[in-house]
Simulated assay, not measured.
Amino acid sequence: MTDDVLSAWTPWTAPGWRVRALAGPEGRRLDLMLAAPQGTAPSGGWPLLFALDGGRFFAALAGAAEALSHRTEKTGVVPMVVAALVHRPDQGPLADQRARDFTRSPGPEAAAPSGGAGALRDLLAEAVLPMLAGAALIDPARTTLFGHSLGGLFVLETLRSDPALFARWVAISPSLWWTTPPADIAAPSLMVGCGEAETGRDMRGRITAWVAEKPDGAVFRQVSGADHGSAPFALIPDILRHASGGPAQRPETAP
């Protein structure tokens, strides 16, 4: 489209969506996105779904949460606060920022930055979660951390190192090729997912084997035909149901 054509259109964002700047690790600026339900919060507060890689997932998660929570009895999704952390492209290459912030140790790609996961966890605990609690009434028993790929690895390693930080956990297509956390992480409230077509780096094989080795199990979802990029979007209804705080039930197709 030309500028002349686009000049007749007005920029739009969903009502109630908010963003604020956040000072991140190494002085980098991050954005914190927020979408809160309309109306009065339940007595215990709203569930919170907190997503990493918000530049990719915030709009899809917040839009789906708002739409599906209108028919909770049909969808299993309750109204919830959706928040997300966004890496800004003006703060350096996105791949480098993600590799640095989501990993605790060097991976097989030696040139990639790494080792910043502890600093990001500190930021979540000391700044982000208190900031969100000040913006909306949140139920601490129904807070969920969601991550995909390297973000999914960050979820698993955060569950291992700081299990009290969130109440529920979602790791979709976690990058177990970078490093593999022990499978004995205690996680009755963990959901792991992947796509059937995730064959690169043996992603599907690594993930299903890791889940199968867990002594206390985990909710597992595998999406038929989905690849690494499409799996998290195909699993959004499952992610939202998990974040709604219902019982974590093992599916019939668990590995």
Rank of each mutant, 00 (worst) to 15 (best):
M1P: 15
L6R: 15
T13Y: 04
G16H: 09
G16Y: 03
G16A: 08
V19E: 11
D31Y: 11
M33L: 15
L34A: 06
A35G: 12
P37K: 05
P37C: 09
G39C: 03
T40C: 10
P47C: 09
F50L: 14
A51F: 09
L52D: 15
D53I: 00
R56L: 05
A60E: 02
L61K: 00
L68Q: 15
S69R: 11
R71A: 15
T75R: 03
G76S: 08
M80W: 01
V81S: 05
R88F: 01
P89E: 01
A95Y: 06
A95N: 08
D96K: 08
Q97P: 11
P106F: 14
E109N: 14
E109H: 14
S114R: 04
L120N: 02
D122E: 14
L123P: 01
E126P: 04
P130T: 10
P130M: 12
M131C: 13
A133F: 04
A141K: 02
A141D: 11
R142Q: 13
T144E: 06
L145S: 03
L145D: 04
S149I: 06
S149R: 07
G151P: 10
V155D: 01
V155H: 03
T158D: 01
S161P: 00
D162L: 09
L165S: 06
F166A: 12
P174C: 06
L176Q: 09
T180Y: 10
A183V: 06
I185S: 05
A186C: 11
L190F: 06
G195S: 11
E196L: 12
E198P: 10
E198W: 15
A209I: 06
A212F: 01
A212T: 05
P215A: 12
P215Y: 12
A218Q: 08
F220K: 00
F220L: 15
R221T: 04
Q222K: 11
F233D: 07
P237F: 05
P237N: 05
L240V: 04
H242N: 13
G245H: 00
P251K: 02
P251D: 00
P255I: 09
